Amino acid sequence: MRQSVYTPLTKLRALAAGALLLASTGCEKIVNLDLQTSTAQLVIEGNLVDDNRPCQVTLNRSANYTATNSFEAVRGATITLADNAGGLETLRETATPGQYLGATLRGVPGRIYTLRVETGGAAYVATSRLPAPVVPFNKLSTQLSAFGTDNIQAVVDYTDPAGKGNSYLFRQYRNGKLNDAIFVQNDEFTDGNRISQALRTRSSSSTDPNELDKLVRGDSLRVEMQNIDPGVYEYFRTLTLILTAGGAPSTTPANPKSNFSGGALGYFSAHSRRVLTIKVP
């Protein structure tokens, strides 16, 4: 099952009553949605990668539809990270308000991690398993889209291992700039297959008026492949449903399905990261 989401994974800041903030490097967008939540909610963005770097967490409060495009950083929270190998640490708040950083625990494939956030007298808990084995990113290439000879698409190749439950997330960079599009896929219909999949950006004059994400010959193209767990996949799958259905509450959830307990928005993802870079021919 393939889905595409127009928001960078590490830049999601808030989903509130009628408004979803979609941000990328140097760019912010507001997409109006008919969502049910009207009060500010805690938005948690947590990532732990198998790149020997510590866990990173960002805390913000969602903004109401009628509010300005600003989101309050949450300071003074107590955040702990534990793994199923006996590890435990408390993250420290950095000099940047709302951003917290671990120190000792690292992302190890196969381990299960639990992130606990305490703030405002409430606790929010999420668990994420860093998938194992990590699926290799075999090849990155390009092709011309069938919808236009000047529309160049990235193509990713990998082999899904036997056994359902594998999920993947792809991010695309053009000349070092993170594109708005995010691509999520699982192996529900492709279990154990060799996959060659085009990343269809679906750019248009409305979503990319200056064609900043449009690939042209000579560009540097970098694609990041993440192995994610089913809970993180579900978060972005339900976010996709909201975006593609206009947020109609009769057919989609009011907010993306977070893997946090306690009513917080956002996600915690322990995942792998593999990157390939080519020059667009």
Rank of each mutant, 00 (worst) to 15 (best):
M1R: 07
R2I: 09
Q3Y: 11
Q3F: 13
P8S: 14
T10I: 13
K11G: 04
K11P: 08
R13A: 14
A14V: 07
A16D: 13
G18A: 01
A19Y: 10
L20C: 12
L20K: 08
L20S: 12
L21R: 12
L22G: 11
A23M: 08
L35N: 03
T37Q: 14
A40M: 06
Q41S: 07
I44D: 08
I44H: 09
N47S: 15
N47K: 15
L48V: 11
N52P: 03
R53F: 08
Q56K: 13
T58E: 15
L59W: 03
R61G: 04
Y65H: 10
T68Y: 09
V74M: 09
D83A: 03
N84F: 00
A95Y: 10
T96N: 06
P97V: 03
G98T: 05
Q99Y: 11
Y100E: 01
G102N: 06
T104Q: 13
V108I: 07
P109V: 03
R111F: 03
T114N: 06
T114F: 10
T114W: 02
L115W: 05
R116D: 04
V117L: 05
V117K: 06
E118H: 15
A122G: 09
A122E: 12
Y124S: 01
A126Q: 08
T127Y: 03
S128A: 03
P131Q: 05
P131K: 12
V134K: 10
V134C: 04
V135W: 11
F137A: 00
T142P: 14
Q143K: 15
Q143T: 15
Q143Y: 05
Q143M: 14
L144Q: 13
A146W: 08
A146Q: 13
F147E: 15
G148W: 14
T149L: 11
D150E: 15
N151L: 10
I152S: 03
D160V: 15
G163W: 07
K164D: 11
N166M: 06
Y168N: 15
L169P: 05
R171Q: 08
Q172P: 01
Y173K: 12
R174F: 00
G176L: 00
D180T: 13
D180F: 11
A181E: 05
A181N: 02
I182T: 11
V184N: 08
Q185D: 13
N186P: 04
D187C: 02
D187W: 03
E188Q: 09
E188H: 08
D191Q: 12
G192C: 09
N193S: 10
R194V: 12
S196H: 09
S196T: 08
Q197R: 11
R200K: 03
T201P: 04
E211A: 12
D213T: 00
D213L: 02
V216A: 14
R217W: 09
L221A: 01
L221F: 05
F236L: 02
R237L: 09
L239F: 10
L243K: 05
T244Y: 03
A245K: 04
P249M: 02
T251C: 04
A254R: 00
N259M: 02
F260K: 04
F260E: 00
S261R: 00
S261L: 04
G263P: 02
A264N: 08
L265R: 07
G266I: 05
Y267E: 01
R273M: 13
R273L: 14
R273D: 10
V275N: 07
V275R: 04
V275Q: 07
T277G: 00
I278N: 08
I278P: 06
V280L: 00
V280M: 03
